[in-house]
C-alpha cells in the first residue's frame, strides 16, 4: 500500500500495548478486518490488530472497545 492510498482510505490504529485482547472489536467489525495477534503484548494479552485493508471508518470498533485509547479511527 503506498502513501497516496493511505491518505484517502479510512483506517484504524490499534495500540497493541493498550489492548487487553477482549475481541469485542472483532465481533462488531462489519468488514472483518480486525484479527487477534499470536504475539503477547507487555501485559500478557494477545492484542487485536488491523489487517490493513477495507476499513470503512464506521468506528463501531471504537465504541465496542472498552479501553479509552486502544483504538483510533481515521476517516479521510
Amino acid at each position: 500500500m503506498n502513501d497516496s492510498v493511505q491518505a484517502t482510505a479510512p483506517f484504524i490504529e490499534i495500540d497493541a500495548e493498550l489492548c487487553k485482547g477482549c475481541k469485542l472489536c472483532i465481533g462488531v467489525c462489519p468488514k472483518g478486518v480486525i484479527d487477534i495477534s499470536e504475539k503477547l503484548n507487555g501485559s500478557s494479552y494477545h492484542p487485536a490488530y488491523y489487517l490493513g485493508r477495507d476499513c470503512t471508518g464506521c468506528a463501531l470498533c471504537f465504541y465496542a472497545c472498552p479501553e479509552p485509547a486502544a483504538i483510533k479511527v481515521v476517516k479521510p
Binding site: C22, Y45, P66
Partner: peptide, 19 residues
C-alpha cells in the same frame, strides 16, 4: 499502566465511560 483502565478485559464500564 497509566493509559489503560483498571477494568477487566471486555468489561462494559470502559465503553460507558468512553461515551
Amino acid at each position: 499502566h497509566k493509559e489503560t483502565t483498571h477494568y477487566c478485559p471486555g468489561c462494559g464500564h470502559g465503553n460507558i465511560h468512553k461515551m
